[in-house]
């Protein structure tokens, strides 16, 4: 169920954020956005609209040219290196290009996210098994990442992002290489994380099948500018106004 966004402090807040890549490529322009705790937000838009840049800005892989970004009330431009490290342990990011280690197994790739938090081997093992089952990858546990199909790699990347039960999960085109059945598994994973862990989930996608029927907020980026999705439901309008 979508949460009521009107009362809480936002988990992520962007105020008039602009990102210009040299020499003068405007990726994101004057974007203001509030993402609330426990919310699922879909960011849609064509390729090159600025979705990936926006995700990179939120996890401080990029810094804004102008504007303010706060995560959990902390200004990202003022946060220390150790602070960024701690923050990234709590934010799961599934990258569009997966960023898996080809020569490591599925298990090792997912476990890596938990190892950096010094979780015990037993806890890691149990969590990885749970995620593999959720994403129907249990039989691929010991396969090298390079031996997997694109769709399987995409699911491994999602499992890694979800491994620490993140308070914020950023998924960049999470269903780009998936068939409908696998897409359903991914949506179920998001729902599971959102309902069980209270995770806030931001999904950047141009795949209408995953947000067409949703009752969650859908925002559209067009040439770096953010607006409400044109075909929104009354509920979505209400959420956008909030």
């Amino acid at each position: 169920m979508p949460r009521d966004a009107s009362t809480d402090k936002p988990l992520v807040e962007l105020v008039n954020v602009t990102k210009i890549y040299p020499p003068d490529v405007v990726a994101v322009e004057d974007v203001s956005l509030r993402i609330y705790k426990g919310e699922i937000l879909f960011l849609t838009g064509m390729s090159g609209a600025g979705k990936t840049t926006l995700i990179k800005l939120i996890c401080r892989l990029e810094t804004p040219t102008r504007g303010l970004i706060e995560v959990a009330g902390r200004d990202l431009s003022q946060i220390s290196t150790a602070g960024v490290q701690r923050m990234r342990q709590k934010i799961g990011v599934a990258y569009q290009d997966f960023r898996l280690l080809d020569k490591q197994t599925v298990l090792q790739n997912i476990a890596m996210a938990m190892e950096v938090t010094y979780a015990s081997t037993k806890v890691i093992r149990a969590r990885v098994e749970e995620l593999l089952a959720l994403l129907n990858l249990s039989d691929k546990r010991d396969k090298l990442a390079s031996e997997l199909s694109r769709g399987e790699q995409q699911r491994v990347a999602l499992a890694r992002a979800a491994a620490n039960g993140p308070s914020l999960l950023l998924a960049d085109e999470p269903t780009g290489n998936l068939d409908p059945a696998a897409t359903e598994l991914v949506i179920n994973l998001f729902r599971h994380l959102n309902e069980k862990n209270g995770s806030t989930i931001v999904v950047a996608t141009h795949d209408p099948s995953i947000y067409a029927e949703t009752e969650h907020r859908v925002m559209t980026l067009n040439n770096g500018q953010l607006s409400a999705h044109p075909n929104r439901s009354p509920r979505q309008i209400e959420l956008f106004e909030a």
Partner: peptide, 16 residues
């Protein structure tokens, strides 16, 4: 290098 880059993205500490 690839692995270190990913570790950085996952929030590995300097000590790690």
């Amino acid at each position: 290098q690839g692995e270190l880059e990913i570790l950085r993205l996952l929030g590995a500490t300097s000590a790690y």
